[in-house]
Design a binder for these strands. Structure first.
Length: 300
DNA sequence: CACTCGTGGCC
DNA sequence: TGGCCAAGAGT
């Protein structure tokens, strides 16, 4: 036997220590995995868990979701954040029905062509739902590879082609083993090799970690300017959407006016929601979630 | 490439 | 208490 590889060690650790997450169960459908991946984009696992269960109970297939309105998808999304993802997921379901007869495609290029499915999610579905050999690179994986292999404190802000190449080189040749390794590296980054306070003493690759060997130098200052929230358009959009989500049907603009005093910012936020396909005007003085009722009369 | 886009919990 | 963060995508 040769020395265990990096992926081999992490995979072994994963098999014994992986969190018991429902979308990792054996009989989970590709659609359920796709939904989990979209929900997990920038939203913590603990908040996704109940939302994922409820979503799939209501819409077990893309066809089931495509039957309903985008407004219902936005409501079902609840407070997971970034509600554009709910609209995209609805568009995604529709596209799957139209282009792929209701079956989640298994080819990377077809997955990438779906609304709301980007570099990470397409690869995650191809690997975790279909067992294909693709590097699945999220922020956790980039951090792990950057530290353990390159010996650097942290990765850059966005996934680059070089990140995919570096990760691909770590994967075993056999597809199923590669998919397992991808999940394992991701899990390591989420649980052990965390951004803030890595638990190196519990790490399966501590002895071969380049960052550890180099003295574990701290990352340079804030690589990204802090994302403030209070007072931003984002907050105002959230407030407006909260009102529309709770309402059934059109909401008079007077009610929306109450969520934020600054009229300029309020108007900008509302226009943004419309531009993004989350909200639509109804007549001259009311708004509703997109598709929340019969089509608005066409002017003219 | 830099920027936008929610939300809630934690140290 | 408030900055910081959590399985990205689209423009």
């Amino acid at each position: 036997m040769s020395e265990p590889t990096f992926a081999g060690r992490v995979s072994r650790w994963y098999e014994q220590n992986a969190r018991d997450l429902p979308w990792r169960e054996p009989d989970v459908t590709p659609w359920a995995i796709l939904v989990s991946e979209v929900m997990l984009q920038q939203t913590p696992v603990v908040r996704v868990l109940p939302a994922w269960q409820a979503w799939l109970q209501r819409w077990p297939t893309p066809a089931a979701l495509a039957t309903e309105s985008p407004a219902e998808a936005i409501r079902m999304w609840g407070r997971l954040g970034y509600p554009r993802r709910a609209v995209r997921l609805h568009e995604c379901a529709t596209a799957i029905v139209e282009r792929h007869a209701g079956a989640v495609p298994d080819q990377l290029d077809q997955l990438l062509a779906l609304p709301g499915i980007g570099t990470y999610t397409a690869r995650a579905v191809a690997a975790f739902a279909y067992g294909q050999r693709h590097p699945v690179v999220d922020t956790n994986v980039r951090r792990v590879v950057c530290r353990a292999v390159a010996g650097e404190p942290d990765a850059g802000p966005a996934t680059r082609p070089a990140d995919l190449v570096a990760t691909e080189e770590l994967l075993p040749a056999e597809p199923a083993a590669a998919a397992l390794a991808s999940a394992a590296i991701m899990e390591l980054g989420a649980v052990i090799c965390t951004a803030r306070a890595p638990r190196c003493t519990a790490c399966p690759v501590e002895t071969s970690c380049a960052w550890r060997a180099s003295g574990q130098v701290a990352p340079p200052g804030p690589t990204r300017r802090p994302q403030r929230y209070a007072g931003t358009d984002r907050q105002v959009r959230g407030l407006l959407l909260g009102v529309l989500r709770e309402a059934t049907g059109p909401v008079p603009h007077q009610r929306l006016d109450q969520v934020w005093t600054d009229e300029v910012q309020r108007g900008r936020a509302l226009r943004g929601l419309i531009t993004d396909g989350l909200v639509e005007p109804v007549g001259e003085a009311a708004y509703r979630l997109i598709g929340d009722g019969p089509p608005a009369p066409v002017p003219g």
